[in-house]
Design a protein around this nucleic acid. Structure first.
Length: 288
DNA sequence: GTGTTTGTTATCAA
DNA sequence: CTTGATAACAAACA
């Protein structure tokens, strides 16, 4: 479930690897995931830089267009230096190595970029929610501006803008934090983690937070995302970085997927319910 | 066979 | 018009 720290990890990894390399071939084998005329446009071009807004990546092409990439739930972007054998590897005992062992390409590989230096970029997506699509510079700018709210970890993320989102809002905290049009990049994991860090229950009405609580939440979001990014993201099943390696933040989670385990702060049991249609984890003693 | 997982959007309701 | 709540989507796993 790539959220801001995971997508930013991939952006940084790929920025040092695929930028400025000529694309010599494109294998778009799944037309649900990849724009139909992708190959026609991309072959012969280069990526100039990679931008990110929330969980959306935007690769600037040498012709001024953008390639937008969204990983949704199970998307992966994996870079390999050299062309790999395409046949599944057979290990001792005769069973095939599963896709989670990350041989690429595999059954879930939807698009393959081949670069002039023989390196390749694989877009995998088990559930096929993700996409690659082209957008003009204007279209990309419109999407960036209209679909995403304030961007954490940037200088646009100011307390004044942040607290304004909560005034008179009737929705609950969790739904607000995950609303991309208000705050960009937070999903289920970091919404729960930020609420725990701030000591606030996720079903609190947004408009009920005091100035002090808002201050705590504001700094908690920055802290949680910053640490997760430093640890290169959280991996459960699917997330891997551009080298195919799992993120290191799993063992630092305080509540997400820790229901039934002891709160690290007060030792009471972490509980799980459902809010905003999502699994929601919390410590009743530490969060009010 | 059933329930569960989640990012985003469509749809309906207030 | 704005805001909110919920179902739906896809696919695999326990």
């Amino acid at each position: 479930m790539p959220e801001l720290p995971e997508v930013e990890t991939i952006r940084r990894d790929l920025s040092t690897r695929v930028v400025d390399k000529k694309i010599i071939a494109l294998d778009a084998r799944d037309h649900k995931v990849a724009d139909k005329n992708l190959a026609k446009i991309l072959v012969g071009k280069k990526f100039i830089k990679i931008e990110r807004r929330g969980k959306l990546l935007a690769f600037l092409l040498s012709d001024g267009q953008y390639l937008l990439a969204h990983l949704k739930m199970t998307g992966q972007l994996i870079y390999k230096e050299k062309r790999t054998r395409s046949k599944e590897k057979i290990v001792a005992g005769g069973h095939k190595i599963s896709p989670s062992d990350l041989q690429v390409p595999n059954n879930f590989t939807r698009v393959i970029f081949s670069f002039v230096d023989k390196s390749q970029l694989f877009f995998n997506d088990m559930r096929r929610f993700g996409y690659l699509k082209l957008a003009s510079a204007d279209e990309k700018e419109k999407i960036f501006n209209e679909n995403f709210g304030i961007e954490p970890l940037t200088e646009n993320f100011k307390f004044k803008n942040f607290s304004a989102l909560f005034a008179r809002r009737k929705t609950n905290l969790k739904a607000l934090l995950m609303n991309q049009k208000l705050i960009a990049g937070i999903g289920n994991i970091y919404a729960d983690e930020a609420c725990y860090c701030a000591g606030l229950l996720p079903w609190r009405k947004a408009g009920s937070l005091t100035a002090g609580e808002l201050k705590r939440l504001f700094s908690s979001i920055t802290e949680v995302l910053k640490v997760a990014l430093k640890n290169r993201g959280t991996s459960f099943d699917d997330f891997v970085d551009a080298q195919g390696e799992k993120g290191g933040h799993y063992n630092f989670l305080n509540v997400y997927e820790r229901d039934g385990e002891k709160c690290r702060r007060c030792k009471s049991i972490i509980k799980k319910t459902r809010h905003a249609g999502r699994g929601t984890h919390f410590c009743l003693k530490c969060q009010k």
